[in-house]
């Protein structure tokens, strides 16, 4: 009788388990505990734990908040889309909005300082993919996601949309500048 037929022993649940199986099951079980433990452990010792503070918002409200942020801290305009470059004080709030097919505004940060980011979308879902730091966050309309970011190196970073958002998805790119 093979696996295609009913079990040979009618009382199969009473059969002993083989040694190699027991060994493997124990190992796998312990490994599962280790992996489970790693996540809370990283919350304690790790520096990369995405914050989950979230508020309901609306496209209009979020746009207004972002506009206020831009009005307050813009230092210049720049780039092919002539976007404002906004330099908030160290430790301050940063607003960035995703819309079809643009990230707005350009943000300028200081290396080693921590900022409170506010992220939302004015229309569809988008993906905030910060390259080459390789930090990837889902952006969902009507939800304002608040978390802290601490740049570790100076340079020009791109924010690439990595959630498909229609025919112009590949045009959706923005910038974050990090200065010493």
């Amino acid at each position: 009788m093979s696996s295609l037929s009913p079990p040979v022993k009618k009382l199969w649940w009473n059969e002993p388990i083989h040694k190699s199986e027991l060994l493997w099951i124990s190992l796998v079980f312990v490994w599962g505990l280790v992996m489970t433990f790693m996540m809370p452990y990283w919350h304690v010792v790790g520096k990369q734990n995405l914050g989950t503070e979230t508020y309901k918002t609306t496209p209009a409200d979020f746009q207004q908040a972002t506009q206020a942020f831009v009005d307050k801290f813009t230092v210049r305009n720049e780039g092919p889309r002539n976007h404002p470059v906004v330099a908030p004080p160290a430790g301050g709030d940063v607003y960035m909005l995703g819309r079809l097919w643009d990230w707005w505004p350009i943000v300028q940060l200081k290396k080693g300082e921590t900022y409170r980011f506010h992220l939302s979308s004015l229309d569809w879902q988008h993906g905030f993919s910060l390259q080459p730091a390789n930090i990837n966050i889902q952006v969902v309309p009507n939800y304002e996601h608040v978390f802290s970011l601490t740049p570790t190196e100076a340079g020009e970073y791109s924010v690439i949309c990595n959630e498909y958002c229609g025919i112009g998805h590949h045009l959706m790119i923005g910038k974050i500048l990090v200065v010493e």
Partner: peptide, 12 residues
């Protein structure tokens, strides 16, 4: 992969 993760920006 945890090591890779440790190398990117701080985020919380």
């Amino acid at each position: 992969n945890w090591k890779y993760l440790a190398e990117t920006w701080g985020i919380s």
